[in-house]
């Protein structure tokens, strides 16, 4: 399909509510990145090339705790693991694109864009490269602006505890976890991972509680398995 301005605009317009919802988290990332020892440029670079909210937050949390670099990268990979599922599904909607288009578009495959693609595919319309770029680039540009604002403003925040900023990440992560609650085996996974992480945190220490807790939940989910009619990513 030809790259049309109309398609690009349609993607950008459809993304507006979710772009606005994501922006505060970009600013939050910028502020926390600077607080955890990154320069404004480094926090901007992180948002520009990683471009994945939750994993950036996890990365900066571990970065601030002086965790080994390979473990930070591994954690980013682990948090973004769900994207593997997204690309497995959406790749099937993108077969009409050229190789370069497809592998460019995949860079922008953030959670809300995945949701938008499912919605569009569900309505029987073809997903064009221009449409994906309209949405994807909107997310990207606003994410960068928000990060910069947060990073610059974050320099001005003296005591994060006084304004509660030190506790914003757990709140954010918990709300994401709760958003997954209709997925298969959710309660069992959350209880197992939570209990294992608390035990590991107490007896072994941070950051191993993340790996150990996550593996426990994944292991239990694999044991239980899935119902036959399970969707690839349940809403």
């Amino acid at each position: 399909m030809q790259f049309t301005k109309l398609e690009f605009k349609s993607g950008a317009v459809m993304a507006i509510p979710m772009v606005l919802a994501a922006a505060p988290f970009g600013a939050l990332f910028g502020a926390l990145a600077v607080k955890n020892g990154m320069s404004v440029f480094e926090s901007f670079l992180t948002s520009a090339v990683i471009f994945a909210g939750a994993s950036q937050m996890v990365g900066i949390e571990l970065f601030g705790a002086n965790v080994a670099p390979w473990l930070i990268v591994l954690s980013i990979f682990a948090v973004n693991f769900r994207h593997i599922l997204y690309s497995a599904v959406t790749g099937r909607y993108m077969t009409h694109m050229t190789f370069a288009e497809r592998y460019t578009a995949f860079f922008f495959l953030v959670d809300p864009l995945y949701a938008m693609m499912e919605e569009k595919h569900d309505s029987g319309r073809q997903i064009s490269f221009a449409w994906m770029m309209g949405a994807g680039v909107s997310f990207w540009v606003v994410w960068q602006i928000a990060t910069l604002i947060g990073a610059i403003f974050g320099n001005l925040i003296g005591n994060p505890e006084a304004v509660g900023i030190d506790f914003l990440l757990p709140i954010y992560f918990l709300s994401i976890v709760m958003g997954f609650r209709k997925r298969n085996n959710w309660a069992v996974i959350v209880i197992t991972s939570g209990a294992a992480a608390i035990i590991a945190y107490h007896y072994i220490g941070t950051p191993w509680h993340v790996t150990i807790g996550a593996l426990a939940g994944i292991f239990v989910a694999a044991i239980i398995g899935l119902p036959k009619d399970a969707k690839l990513v349940a809403e």
């Binding site: 939750a54 996890v58 949390e61 954690s75 682990a78 948090v79 693991f81 769900r82 599922l85 757990p170 992560f173 918990l174 994401i176 976890v177 997954f180 997925r183 298969n184 085996n185 959710w186 996974i189 959350v190 197992t192 991972s193 939570g194 209990a195 294992a196 992480a197 608390i198 945190y201 509680h209 993340v210 790996t211 150990i212 807790g213 996550a214 593996l215 426990a216 939940g217 994944i218 239990v220 989910a221 694999a222 899935l226 990513v233």
Partner: peptide, 13 residues
């Protein structure tokens, strides 16, 4: 499929 919920829960717990 369990990965995102498991990782994020382990961080929050």
């Amino acid at each position: 499929r369990a990965v995102p919920a498991a990782v994020l829960t382990a961080i929050v717990a």
